[in-house]
Design a protein around this nucleic acid. Structure first.
Length: 286
DNA sequence: CTTACGGCCTGGGTGC
DNA sequence: TGCACCCAGGCCGTAA
């Protein structure tokens, strides 16, 4: 579920409460989504949180390296489809599927809840960041238009697949990809290498616009997503394509369709997101 | 090197 | 009420 705006919202929330806190203890439930559960239990207690960062859809909780014997480490968290990372008082009722508890030195806890356990959690020793996070693509909000254009044009895959590919861009997911393509009036099956200058320019602009608006509204909540305080986002109200199969396009009035592209449900308007002639011919053979 | 697909896991919704 | 089936914000490994 969580894409860049949701992860950014969670990180901003955590940033207001975690830095400066010391982790006192770690309690684990199911651990099949944790790379090395024993490492969490042995290396995190005693550590002080110094920063919380986002890298694509990953959350990086940085710990200090004080008292010499312990190496500086980071806690790397990916929320997968249904992961939630929330701080609350220790006595707060425990939600089902909560599998990780970090006891903090202010009487609160950082909890990780994940129904489907598609998330991921691991310890990163100092210096291991590059090997794990270095392979990811451009941050959509930091990349220049030139960099974006070069990456998109370099491969002739469907534009939908390119936007979703974390090695091309880091942070885009199914919702913001469909919303960006709708705003740019680009069909999800168009090929990256074949987009015009004007189309790439438009896509770059609207993608940043969509992401920034979503961040401002605290992300999109479809079912499971909540921020670091357990609150849902509000951007779903503004979706114009995602999840709107059968509804009228707010721009041209045609009916929004759902097709599978890159193995994912893809919502688009056949009226204002025209397929290339080649694709159209394939779909309506004479 | 690509792309396509199944699988991971649980729950919600729908239709019979 | 039960059951089968489809769908879900992500991503990885394997096969072609």
């Amino acid at each position: 579920m969580p894409e860049l705006p949701e992860v950014e919202t969670v990180v901003r929330g955590l940033r207001t409460v975690l830095p400066g806190r010391r982790i006192l203890n770690v309690r684990l439930g199911k651990t099949d989504f944790i790379e090395d559960p024993a490492a969490l239990e042995s290396q995190l207690p005693g550590g002080r949180i110094v920063a919380v960062r986002r890298h694509g859809k990953f959350i990086v909780v940085e710990l200090d390296s004080e008292n010499g014997r312990r190496q500086a480490t980071s806690l790397l968290i990916h929320l997968g489809m249904t992961g939630q990372l929330v701080t609350c008082p220790t006595e707060t009722r425990i939600l089902p599927h909560t599998h990780v508890f970090f006891g903090l030195d202010d009487g609160r806890e950082l909890r990780y809840t994940d129904i489907r356990r598609f998330g991921q959690m691991r310890i990163l020793a100092n210096g291991a960041h590059e090997s794990v996070l270095g392979g990811l693509g451009l941050d959509p909000l930091e990349a220049s238009e030139q960099e974006f254009s070069a990456r998109i044009r370099a491969r002739s895959a469907h534009i939908k697949a390119l936007l979703l590919d974390q090695h091309v861009l880091r942070g885009m997911g199914n919702i913001y990809t469909d919303e960006s393509l709708w705003r740019a009036r680009i069909h999800p099956r168009r090929l990256g290498a074949k987009l015009s200058d004007a189309e790439v320019h438009k896509l770059y602009r609207v993608m940043r616009q969509v992401l920034n608006e979503a961040i401002r509204l605290g992300g999109s909540s479809i079912s499971d997503y909540v921020d670091a305080d357990g609150q849902p986002g509000e951007f779903q109200i503004w979706h114009r394509a995602y999840g709107r199969e059968g509804k009228k396009c707010s721009r041209c009035g045609k009916t929004i369709q759902r097709i599978i592209v890159a193995g994912r449900s893809s919502y688009f308007c056949p009226g204002c997101q025209r397929a290339s002639r080649k694709i159209r011919r394939k779909r309506t053979p004479r």
